[in-house]
Amino acid sequence: MDFRFDILVEYIPFFVKGTLLTIGLSLVGILIGTVLGLLIGLGKMTRNKPIAFLCSCYITFFRGTPLYVQLLLIHFGVVPLLTGNTNGILASIIALSLIAGAYISEIFRAGIQSIDKGQMEAARSLGMNHVQSMKDVILPQAFKRMIPPLGNEFIVLIKESSLASLVAAPELMYYGRALGSQYFRVWEPYLTAALIYLVLTTSLSYLLNRLERRLATE
Protein backbone atom coordinates (compact mmCIF):
# COMPACT_ATOMS: atom_id res chain seq x y z
CA MET A 1 0.00 0.00 0.00
CA ASP A 2 1.27 3.44 -0.84
CA PHE A 3 0.64 6.34 1.48
CA ARG A 4 0.25 9.77 -0.15
CA PHE A 5 1.61 12.38 2.22
CA ASP A 6 1.17 15.08 -0.42
CA ILE A 7 -2.62 15.03 -0.20
CA LEU A 8 -2.40 15.14 3.60
CA VAL A 9 -0.20 18.20 3.42
CA GLU A 10 -2.73 19.83 1.17
CA TYR A 11 -5.44 19.13 3.71
CA ILE A 12 -3.53 20.32 6.81
CA PRO A 13 -5.45 23.62 7.07
CA PHE A 14 -8.75 21.73 6.86
CA PHE A 15 -7.71 19.20 9.51
CA VAL A 16 -6.72 22.09 11.79
CA LYS A 17 -10.06 23.82 11.28
CA GLY A 18 -11.92 20.56 11.72
CA THR A 19 -10.04 19.68 14.90
CA LEU A 20 -10.79 23.09 16.36
CA LEU A 21 -14.50 22.63 15.72
CA THR A 22 -14.36 19.11 17.17
CA ILE A 23 -12.79 20.53 20.33
CA GLY A 24 -15.35 23.34 20.34
CA LEU A 25 -18.33 21.02 19.93
CA SER A 26 -17.03 18.69 22.65
CA LEU A 27 -16.29 21.50 25.11
CA VAL A 28 -19.67 23.16 24.66
CA GLY A 29 -21.36 19.77 24.88
CA ILE A 30 -19.49 18.98 28.10
CA LEU A 31 -20.28 22.36 29.66
CA ILE A 32 -23.97 22.47 28.79
CA GLY A 33 -24.29 18.73 29.41
CA THR A 34 -22.80 19.09 32.90
CA VAL A 35 -25.12 21.92 33.90
CA LEU A 36 -28.07 20.06 32.41
CA GLY A 37 -26.95 16.82 34.06
CA LEU A 38 -26.81 18.43 37.51
CA LEU A 39 -30.31 19.88 37.10
CA ILE A 40 -31.82 16.68 35.71
CA GLY A 41 -30.02 14.54 38.29
CA LEU A 42 -31.29 16.67 41.19
CA GLY A 43 -34.70 16.77 39.51
CA LYS A 44 -34.89 13.00 39.43
CA MET A 45 -34.06 12.83 43.16
CA THR A 46 -36.63 15.38 44.34
CA ARG A 47 -39.74 14.32 46.21
CA ASN A 48 -41.78 16.33 43.69
CA LYS A 49 -43.29 13.45 41.71
CA PRO A 50 -44.12 15.27 38.40
CA ILE A 51 -40.62 16.79 38.16
CA ALA A 52 -38.97 13.47 39.00
CA PHE A 53 -41.12 11.76 36.38
CA LEU A 54 -40.26 14.28 33.66
CA CYS A 55 -36.56 13.94 34.43
CA SER A 56 -36.88 10.15 34.25
CA CYS A 57 -38.56 10.41 30.86
CA TYR A 58 -35.81 12.68 29.62
CA ILE A 59 -33.10 10.25 30.71
CA THR A 60 -34.96 7.26 29.28
CA PHE A 61 -35.38 8.89 25.88
CA PHE A 62 -31.89 10.29 25.43
CA ARG A 63 -30.12 7.23 26.79
CA GLY A 64 -32.38 4.82 24.99
CA THR A 65 -32.18 6.17 21.43
CA PRO A 66 -29.12 6.47 19.17
CA LEU A 67 -27.37 9.82 18.97
CA TYR A 68 -27.62 9.57 15.18
CA VAL A 69 -31.41 9.46 15.33
CA GLN A 70 -31.52 12.34 17.82
CA LEU A 71 -29.18 14.34 15.63
CA LEU A 72 -31.37 13.90 12.54
CA LEU A 73 -34.51 14.77 14.49
CA ILE A 74 -32.90 17.91 15.83
CA HIS A 75 -31.18 18.89 12.59
CA PHE A 76 -34.12 18.40 10.23
CA GLY A 77 -36.94 18.82 12.74
CA VAL A 78 -36.28 20.90 15.83
CA VAL A 79 -33.79 23.49 14.57
CA PRO A 80 -35.77 24.40 11.39
CA LEU A 81 -38.89 24.61 13.53
CA LEU A 82 -37.22 27.08 15.88
CA THR A 83 -35.06 29.12 13.48
CA GLY A 84 -36.53 28.49 10.02
CA ASN A 85 -33.21 27.14 8.72
CA THR A 86 -31.05 24.09 9.17
CA ASN A 87 -27.78 24.65 10.98
CA GLY A 88 -25.41 21.69 11.36
CA ILE A 89 -23.30 23.20 14.13
CA LEU A 90 -26.26 24.32 16.22
CA ALA A 91 -27.99 20.95 15.77
CA SER A 92 -24.80 19.13 16.81
CA ILE A 93 -24.34 21.26 19.91
CA ILE A 94 -27.95 20.69 20.96
CA ALA A 95 -27.83 16.95 20.33
CA LEU A 96 -24.48 16.44 22.08
CA SER A 97 -25.53 18.55 25.08
CA LEU A 98 -28.83 16.73 25.47
CA ILE A 99 -27.36 13.24 25.36
CA ALA A 100 -24.46 14.24 27.63
CA GLY A 101 -27.00 15.73 30.05
CA ALA A 102 -28.82 12.41 30.25
CA TYR A 103 -25.68 10.39 31.03
CA ILE A 104 -24.18 12.99 33.35
CA SER A 105 -27.40 13.27 35.37
CA GLU A 106 -27.07 9.57 36.19
CA ILE A 107 -23.43 10.10 37.15
CA PHE A 108 -24.42 12.89 39.53
CA ARG A 109 -27.23 10.88 41.03
CA ALA A 110 -25.04 7.81 41.52
CA GLY A 111 -22.29 9.97 43.05
CA ILE A 112 -24.62 11.60 45.54
CA GLN A 113 -26.40 8.38 46.46
CA SER A 114 -23.09 6.55 46.94
CA ILE A 115 -22.30 8.72 49.98
CA ASP A 116 -23.14 6.89 53.20
CA LYS A 117 -26.43 8.16 54.61
CA GLY A 118 -24.76 8.62 57.99
CA GLN A 119 -23.03 11.67 56.53
CA MET A 120 -26.32 13.43 55.87
CA GLU A 121 -27.65 12.32 59.26
CA ALA A 122 -24.58 13.67 61.06
CA ALA A 123 -24.84 17.02 59.28
CA ARG A 124 -28.58 17.29 59.96
CA SER A 125 -28.16 16.24 63.60
CA LEU A 126 -25.88 19.26 64.04
CA GLY A 127 -28.74 21.54 62.97
CA MET A 128 -27.55 22.19 59.41
CA ASN A 129 -30.38 22.38 56.88
CA HIS A 130 -30.65 20.19 53.79
CA VAL A 131 -29.00 22.67 51.42
CA GLN A 132 -26.07 23.37 53.78
CA SER A 133 -25.55 19.65 54.34
CA MET A 134 -25.56 18.98 50.60
CA LYS A 135 -23.14 21.80 49.86
CA ASP A 136 -20.63 21.31 52.67
CA VAL A 137 -20.80 17.58 53.32
CA ILE A 138 -22.34 15.50 50.52
CA LEU A 139 -21.34 17.21 47.25
CA PRO A 140 -17.61 17.65 48.00
CA GLN A 141 -17.36 13.92 48.68
CA ALA A 142 -19.61 12.94 45.79
CA PHE A 143 -17.67 15.11 43.35
CA LYS A 144 -14.47 13.12 43.88
CA ARG A 145 -16.27 9.91 43.06
CA MET A 146 -17.82 11.46 39.94
CA ILE A 147 -14.52 12.33 38.29
CA PRO A 148 -13.72 8.92 36.74
CA PRO A 149 -17.18 8.37 35.21
CA LEU A 150 -17.36 12.03 34.15
CA GLY A 151 -14.01 11.62 32.41
CA ASN A 152 -15.37 8.59 30.60
CA GLU A 153 -18.41 10.54 29.47
CA PHE A 154 -16.25 13.42 28.21
CA ILE A 155 -14.18 11.01 26.14
CA VAL A 156 -17.30 9.38 24.71
CA LEU A 157 -18.55 12.84 23.80
CA ILE A 158 -15.39 13.77 21.88
CA LYS A 159 -15.76 10.59 19.85
CA GLU A 160 -19.48 10.94 19.31
CA SER A 161 -19.03 14.50 18.04
CA SER A 162 -17.78 12.82 14.84
CA LEU A 163 -21.41 12.12 13.99
CA ALA A 164 -21.82 15.86 13.47
CA SER A 165 -20.16 15.37 10.07
CA LEU A 166 -23.37 13.64 8.97
CA VAL A 167 -25.32 16.89 9.34
CA ALA A 168 -22.57 18.85 7.59
CA ALA A 169 -20.98 20.46 10.63
CA PRO A 170 -17.44 20.99 9.33
CA GLU A 171 -15.53 19.24 12.10
CA LEU A 172 -12.70 16.73 11.89
CA MET A 173 -14.56 13.80 10.35
CA TYR A 174 -16.28 16.09 7.87
CA TYR A 175 -12.93 17.05 6.35
CA GLY A 176 -11.72 13.47 6.63
CA ARG A 177 -14.65 12.34 4.54
CA ALA A 178 -14.14 15.22 2.11
CA LEU A 179 -10.54 14.22 1.55
CA GLY A 180 -11.54 10.59 1.14
CA SER A 181 -14.10 11.29 -1.53
CA GLN A 182 -12.03 13.88 -3.38
CA TYR A 183 -9.10 11.50 -3.97
CA PHE A 184 -10.89 8.16 -3.48
CA ARG A 185 -8.50 7.33 -0.66
CA VAL A 186 -9.18 5.41 2.56
CA TRP A 187 -6.07 5.18 4.72
CA GLU A 188 -4.81 8.76 4.63
CA PRO A 189 -7.95 10.59 5.77
CA TYR A 190 -9.27 8.06 8.27
CA LEU A 191 -5.96 7.11 9.88
CA THR A 192 -5.17 10.79 10.28
CA ALA A 193 -8.55 11.46 11.83
CA ALA A 194 -8.14 8.46 14.13
CA LEU A 195 -4.73 9.73 15.23
CA ILE A 196 -6.09 13.20 16.01
CA TYR A 197 -9.01 11.72 18.00
CA LEU A 198 -6.50 9.61 19.94
CA VAL A 199 -4.42 12.68 20.79
CA LEU A 200 -7.54 14.50 22.00
CA THR A 201 -8.88 11.63 24.13
CA THR A 202 -5.53 10.62 25.65
CA SER A 203 -4.72 14.25 26.53
CA LEU A 204 -8.06 14.54 28.26
CA SER A 205 -7.63 11.32 30.22
CA TYR A 206 -4.14 12.42 31.24
CA LEU A 207 -5.54 15.71 32.61
CA LEU A 208 -8.35 13.91 34.42
CA ASN A 209 -5.92 11.42 35.97
CA ARG A 210 -3.85 14.27 37.31
CA LEU A 211 -6.91 15.98 38.75
CA GLU A 212 -8.03 12.74 40.36
CA ARG A 213 -4.62 12.17 41.96
CA ARG A 214 -4.43 15.73 43.19
CA LEU A 215 -7.83 15.43 44.88
CA ALA A 216 -6.95 12.04 46.33
CA THR A 217 -3.91 13.37 48.18
CA GLU A 218 -5.67 16.44 49.52
Binding site: D116, G118, Q119, E121, A122, A123, R124, S125, L126, G127, M128, N129, V137, P140, Q141, K144, E218
Partner: peptide, 20 residues
Protein backbone atom coordinates in the same frame (compact mmCIF):
# COMPACT_ATOMS: atom_id res chain seq x y z
CA UNK B 1 -36.56 21.01 63.44
CA UNK B 2 -33.16 22.48 62.55
CA UNK B 3 -33.43 24.79 65.53
CA UNK B 4 -34.38 21.92 67.85
CA UNK B 5 -31.46 19.85 66.59
CA UNK B 6 -28.98 22.58 67.53
CA UNK B 7 -29.97 21.88 71.14
CA UNK B 8 -29.80 18.10 70.82
CA UNK B 9 -26.38 16.65 70.00
CA UNK B 10 -26.02 13.14 68.65
CA UNK B 11 -23.18 10.64 68.59
CA UNK B 12 -23.46 7.69 66.19
CA UNK B 13 -22.23 4.12 66.34
CA UNK B 14 -20.34 4.61 63.04
CA UNK B 15 -18.92 8.04 64.10
CA UNK B 16 -19.98 9.64 60.79
CA UNK B 17 -17.12 12.11 60.78
CA UNK B 18 -16.76 14.06 57.53
CA UNK B 19 -13.80 12.31 55.84
CA UNK B 20 -12.98 15.22 53.52
Amino acid sequence: INKVRTEVGMVFQQFNLFPH
